Simulated assay, not measured.
Amino acid sequence: MNRIKNQRGFTLIEMLIVMLIITVLIAIAIPNVAKQTSAVDEKGCKAFVQMVQGQVESYRMDNKKVPAMTDLVAGGYLKTGETSCPNGDTIDISTEGVVSSRAS
């Protein structure tokens, strides 16, 4: 019985201070993560546009004409779901074969 009385633990105030510190750290970290998500989407779209440009050039070498997006999918150059950027922007192919993205 004497052993139980001598054991010490954290007080309520100490626990509240630890919770306050953790809350402040989370409040600082979450906005930074949200900002990075949009930057990742932009970079992902630029990389996707470059990949589609490569596929357009490959199609042009194989078929001697500039493809539309449907031609790339039908020819197996792109998968069916790969017709827009990860952030939702639309991919356009000009008549000269230049690939660009625009906000949808």
Rank of each mutant, 00 (worst) to 15 (best):
I22S: 09
I21M: 05
V98L: 09
I17L: 06
S104G: 14
T23F: 08
G97H: 00
S104A: 13
V66E: 08
G81L: 01
T95V: 01
T11C: 00
Q50W: 13
Q50P: 09
K46C: 14
I28Q: 11
D71C: 04
E42V: 11
E57A: 14
M69F: 04
T37A: 15
V24F: 10
A74C: 13
Q36V: 08
M19Q: 08
G81C: 01
K35A: 15
I4D: 05
K35L: 15
V73C: 03
L12E: 02
E42K: 12
L25G: 14
R8D: 06
R102T: 12
M19V: 15
N32H: 13
I28M: 12
A68M: 11
N6V: 13
M61Y: 15
D41A: 15
L72Q: 03
N63Q: 12
T23H: 07
N32K: 13
S101Y: 02
T83Q: 04
A103S: 15
Y59F: 05
C45F: 00
A29L: 09
A27C: 09
D62P: 05
K79R: 12
A29M: 10
V98Y: 03
L20K: 06
S84D: 04
P86R: 06
C45A: 11
C45Q: 04
G81P: 00
T95I: 01
N32F: 07
